[in-house]
């Protein structure tokens, strides 16, 4: 599903050592785009975002968050705005396979990184990702508003190896608030999906 990106810089794993692990991707974002983006011309800047395997060219206000770029400029409204200040997790997306908050990410700073939103999680044929199916099977949501963020966070939680025990899952899913209180069923869903997920 994820295309390899040619806009990323050379891998620095060699420099940092094998233990660099998770952060290698983010550490290595040496940009191949213009270094300066001005507040001139009404503050609009051109940028290219790689989302769900496709490049999207935008010309938006330099202040635009990645979340607003997705929602207001690309009609990718699956990523939700619940607080817009990094406190609820509803806007969680995968960036270079890590879960991050799109509300606290400037869109312009996300250039050159691989962004996966809920719309990009199912297969090209529309087949649900095992985590999506597990959320349905376990009724792991009620209103559904936090659900895209929960699911992307859950996918990362499993990939990180943080889904071994119930306590581990609960701790590492605590960045995604669910006001309806579906938490125990989210844990069940993750336990169902973890064995069905391929690595990476």
């Amino acid at each position: 599903m994820h295309q390899s990106s040619d806009t990323r810089g050379p891998s620095r794993r060699g420099v940092m050592g094998a233990a660099a692990g998770l952060a290698a991707g983010s550490a290595a974002r040496v940009a191949a785009q213009p270094a300066v983006s001005g507040a001139e011309s009404g503050g609009h800047v051109a940028m290219r975002l790689q989302i769900n395997g496709h490049d999207h060219d935008l010309n938006v206000d330099v202040r635009t968050s990645l979340l607003d770029a997705l929602r207001e400029h690309l009609d990718l409204t699956g990523s939700k705005k619940g607080c817009d200040q990094g406190q609820c997790g509803a806007c969680t997306v995968l960036i270079d396979d890590q879960r991050e908050l799109s509300c606290l990410t400037l869109a312009i700073a996300a250039q050159g990184r691989r962004i996966t939103t809920i719309e990009g999680l199912a297969g090209a044929d529309g087949a649900l990702h095992p985590m999506q199916q597990a959320f349905i099977d376990n009724d792991a949501f009620q209103c559904g508003y936090c659900t895209p963020g929960q699911i992307l966070s859950a996918v990362a939680c499993v990939a990180e190896g943080h889904a071994t025990t119930d306590a581990d899952i609960q701790e590492h899913m605590s960045g995604n608030l669910c006001r309806c209180g579906a938490y125990p069923k989210i844990v069940l869903a993750i336990k169902q999906a973890r064995g069905q997920m391929g690595r990476g």
């Binding site: 050592g17 952060a23 550490a27 974002r29 040496v30």
Partner: peptide, 12 residues
């Protein structure tokens, strides 16, 4: 944006 410095300054 100093995140590119992470290429050299993210080691442990």
């Amino acid at each position: 944006d100093i995140s590119p410095l992470g290429a050299d300054l993210a080691g442990v």
